[in-house]
C-alpha cells in the first residue's frame, strides 16, 4: 500500500489532493458530498480583512472545455472566517490553507497577522494573481518587486508555511517566482486563471460586465503543466499544481511534472466528489505502479528527458 503523505517543505499533507481556492467556499457545501478529512486539505476562498461584495453578474460564462469567471473575490472577511468557518472546518478534521487577499500590502499583512494566532491554519496561500479585482491581486502579481514586498510582509506577519499563487498573465512569470521565493515564500501555487474573453453575439457585447475574466477548466491544463514543469526544473521548490484537473491522471501529470500536491477547482462545480475520486485514483495508480511514496513520482517525467535514468515502467 502506497503512502499518500506528501511533503511541501515545512507543510505535510495526508495526501496530495486539495480543493482549490475560490471553488470550494469554506468547505460547508462540499462536505455534503465528500469527507473533507479524506482530502489533503482545502484552500479556502480568498479572505480579505473586511467583507468584499464581489462583482455584478453575470459572473461566469462557459466556453469550450473551460469556464471564464469574474467573481471579484466576494468573501465574508477575516473575522467571519476566524469565528465561523475555521472552527467548523476543524470539527470536520480538514487541513486548512487560507488564501489571503488584500488591496494593499497593509491589508495582506493584516489578514496574515489575524491568522498568525489562529489554531488550525496549516498554511497560507498568497493570492497576488486574481485577474478580477482592480486594486490588489493582479498588480502585485505582475510586478516582481511588489510581489516580493507583499510576500515579505505576509511572511513577517505570519510564520506559517507560505505558498504564493502566481498569475500566468504576468509579463515575466519566472521573474515573479524568483522574487517571491527570495522574499521568503516556501513554495508556489501554479497557476491562477488565464485572462480571457467571451462575446455575446446576440447582445453584441462582452458576456461579462467586467469584459475579461479568468479562464479555468480543462482548457488550461496543458498551460498550467508547462509552468509547473518550468518551476520545478528551475527552482526545485514545493509546488501546488492546479488547472483543469478532472481525474486522477490529470493529477498524476502534475505530480510527474514536479508538483508535490494538486488542487481540484472547476471540476467540483460539475461533480462535487471529484477531489475524493482523484485521491482514490492516485492511490490505485501508485499501488499498481509500485511507487511507495508520492515523493517518488514528483518530477519523475523530467528524468526521462534529462537522461538521468529510465523511468520505471510496469512494475506492478
Amino acid at each position: 500500500m502506497s503512502d499518500l503523505t506528501t511533503r511541501l517543505g515545512p507543510l505535510t499533507l495526508r495526501n496530495p489532493v486539495l480543493l482549490a481556492s475560490g471553488t470550494a467556499g469554506f468547505g460547508r457545501e462540499l462536505a455534503e458530498y465528500l469527507d473533507l478529512a479524506g482530502l489533503g486539505g482545502i484552500i479556502v476562498k480568498g479572505t480579505s480583512p473586511s467583507p468584499w461584495y464581489g462583482n455584478p453578474g453575470p459572473r461566469t460564462v462557459e466556453t469550450p472545455s473551460g469556464l471564464i469567471n469574474s467573481i471579484g473575490l466576494e468573501n465574508p472577511g477575516l473575522r467571519h472566517f476566524l469565528e465561523e468557518d475555521l472552527p467548523w472546518l476543524r470539527t470536520q478534521g480538514a487541513t486548512v490553507i487560507v488564501n489571503v487577499v488584500g488591496r494593499t500590502v497593509e491589508e495582506y499583512a493584516a489578514v496574515a497577522e489575524g491568522l498568525a494566532g489562529a489554531d488550525g491554519v496549516a498554511a497560507l496561500e498568497l493570492n497576488i494573481s486574481c485577474p478580477n479585482v482592480k486594486a490588489g491581486g493582479i498588480q502585485f502579481g505582475h510586478d516582481p518587486r511588489l510581489a516580493a514586498e507583499v510576500t515579505r510582509a505576509v511572511k513577517a506577519a505570519c510564520g506559517r508555511p507560505l505558498f504564493v499563487k502566481l498569475s500566468p498573465n504576468a509579463p515575466d512569470v519566472p521573474a515573479v517566482a524568483e522574487a517571491v521565493l527570495e522574499a521568503g515564500a516556501d513554495g508556489l501555487s501554479l497557476i491562477n486563471t488565464y485572462l480571457a474573453l467571451a462575446i455575446d453575439v446576440a447582445r453584441l457585447r462582452p458576456v461579462l460586465p467586467s469584459v475579461f475574466g479568468g479562464l479555468s477548466g480543462p482548457a488550461i491544463k496543458p498551460l498550467a503543466l508547462r509552468w509547473v514543469w518550468e518551476a520545478h526544473a528551475r527552482f526545485r521548490v514545493p509546488i501546488i499544481g492546479m488547472g483543469g484537473i478532472r481525474e486522477w491522471s490529470d493529477a498524476a501529470e502534475f505530480l510527474l511534472a514536479g508538483a508535490q500536491a494538486v488542487a481540484v477547482g472547476t471540476a467540483s462545480f460539475t461533480e462535487p466528489r471529484t477531489a475524493a475520486f482523484v485521491v482514490e485514483g492516485l492511490r490505485k495508480w501508485l499501488d499498481e505502479r509500485g511507487f511507495a511514496t508520492v515523493g517518488e513520482v514528483v518530477g519523475l517525467a523530467h528524468r526521462a528527458i534529462d537522461g538521468e535514468e529510465a523511468v520505471p515502467l510496469g512494475q506492478s
Binding site: L30, G57, P58, R59, I71, F269
Partner: peptide, 8 residues
Amino acid sequence: IGICLSCT
C-alpha cells in the same frame, strides 16, 4: 450547490 458564487 453554492460554491462558485456565479449566480449571486
